[in-house]
Amino acid sequence: MSTEKLDRRDELEALLPFYLNGTLSDDEREAVERWLASDPAAAIALEEAEAEYSAAAMGNEAIRPPADALSRLSAALERESGPPRLARTSWLKRVGGWFAAPSSGLAWGAAALAVALLAAQTVWISTRDANDYSVAGSGVEQVQLPFVLVSFNDEAPISEVTGVLQSLQLEIDAGPLPGGVYRIVLPVSGAADYDRLAAELEAQPLVARVIAGARPKAE
């Protein structure tokens, strides 16, 4: 029954709800409008569609979702590890993963390689231009960006946290990291700006703690 092909007039009838919700293509909209302008029955059909629109809205809005659904979702989310994520994994985690590998030979080999890499990196850092700085092991973008580590009050609603960060034109760059802290990049040009913005962040009631991360050198 529902798969019969509609004639043109029936199809226009079927399109009226989509005319009302504004999702028709230009061609379809113009066809409906031509029909509405030429057929008195079309105007009555449109009135009925408007009544159906209100009735469907009332029927749906009368259904009240449970008030505690968000807290239950949050609890379930915390239990879910989720799939492999798109975010880059830090070198520290990767090295940790090697240590945790089941093959002890492979783990010790990886450890030796990591120690050698660390030593090489230390030598490289100590011999390079003193005006540069870097955060060992961070991604390319983070190497150059000053950041702080921030923890928020446990009861802080996420929407308010987002609002506070947006008001300061900041965003969470990574987290939660071990210890429940978030890394927030500070778009500043010097140490004074860094200190000012970090203090501004710390003054927010939702913020529990601000820990200095990569800070530009004083000018």
Binding site: E11, E13, A14
Partner: peptide, 8 residues
């Protein structure tokens, strides 16, 4: 479209 037509 046909489901919408018959629903209405």
């Amino acid at each position: 479209k046909t489901r919408m037509f018959y629903a209405r």
